[in-house]
Amino acid sequence: MSSSRPRRLVVLISGSGSNLQALIDALNTSELPNTSIVLVVSNRKAAYGLQRAASAVPAIPTYYQALQPFLKQNPDKSRADYDREVARVVRRANPDVVVLAGWMHVFGDGFLEEMETADDGSGDGAPAPKRIPVINLHPALPGAFDGTHAIDRAYDAFQRGEITHSGVMVHHVVKEVDRGEPVLIRVVNMHHGEDKDAFEKRVHETEWKVIVEATRKVLDKIHPPPLQ
């Protein structure tokens, strides 16, 4: 059932935020209609993506919290506590979908559990009924080059003659790193004689398209835009 209420995104970043910028540019266009980014979360204080959020029109609220400072400030807390704290910040923004767009921190079970159900704030311990989908952008095809440095590893594998193409996917986030059900997959062919920088540029250009298309696909399924 369609609704006139704007669809709400929370985006998590760690770096330059070029994928965040792709989402910002698509807001309230035919690519991502009736949608707003209500919060950008970073685990790196110097992430340029925070400036992108602040420069958006209207400006997008931001939140910064890194693991090590959190543990230093809270010596009785653990990595799992950090994950849950980030999850609670995300939940308070009441998103329809959470997008990990270059988020360089592997969440444990606690984050995903908070997205599945959480205290609704009423004080009676009743679980909130809303499950929040969490999706992640990864510059590789399903089952290939999970984890970090996927572009570098794909390029090196091509040079060794082991693969002829790589790709980009957006997938649902599960406990196993980069093993969730794909939302959208796009193949990126590899060319002999192309240097790594040129290949990486083509991968990033593909990412900017895929993250918008996949986010809309997930949003449309749970919260269709109003009929025109």
Rank of each mutant, 00 (worst) to 15 (best):
Y82H: 03
H138D: 10
N19F: 01
G110F: 06
F107Q: 06
F70E: 13
Y64M: 06
V99A: 07
I24C: 08
D119V: 05
H191Y: 14
K77F: 13
S3I: 05
V218A: 11
T117M: 13
A157W: 06
D81E: 09
V212Y: 06
G180K: 00
T62Y: 02
T117C: 09
V203P: 04
L112C: 02
T215N: 09
R5E: 15
P61N: 12
D178T: 10
S14G: 08
V183C: 05
P224L: 12
P225I: 07
I60L: 06
P95K: 02
G102S: 09
G167Y: 05
A101S: 08
A150N: 08
I13E: 01
P133Q: 07
G193A: 03
V168M: 02
D25T: 13
H223L: 13
S16V: 10
T35Q: 07
D119M: 09
D120L: 03
I211K: 02
N19L: 01
F107L: 14
V90N: 05
F145K: 01
N28T: 11
G110I: 08
A46G: 15
P6W: 11
A47S: 04
N94F: 05
G121P: 00
I151T: 10
L100D: 02
P139M: 01
S78E: 07
I60G: 10
I37P: 06
R84D: 01
D124R: 15
G15Y: 04
Q228P: 15
K130F: 08
S14N: 03
S30K: 14
A144C: 08
H165W: 11
K45A: 15
G180W: 00
E205G: 04
L12W: 09
I185T: 13
R186I: 00
S78Q: 08
S14E: 03
R216F: 13
A80E: 14
H165L: 12
Q65D: 12
P182Q: 07
I151Q: 12
S42P: 00
K130N: 10
A157D: 10
R216D: 12
G193H: 05
V177K: 02
K45V: 15
M190R: 04
H105P: 10
A46T: 15
Q159I: 09
L12S: 00
H223T: 14
D81C: 06
I135D: 02
F70P: 11
Y82Q: 04
D109Q: 15
H105Q: 14
G193Q: 05
V203R: 03
E213M: 05
F199Y: 10
T117D: 07
P95Y: 00
D195L: 05
V89G: 04
I132M: 10
P6C: 12
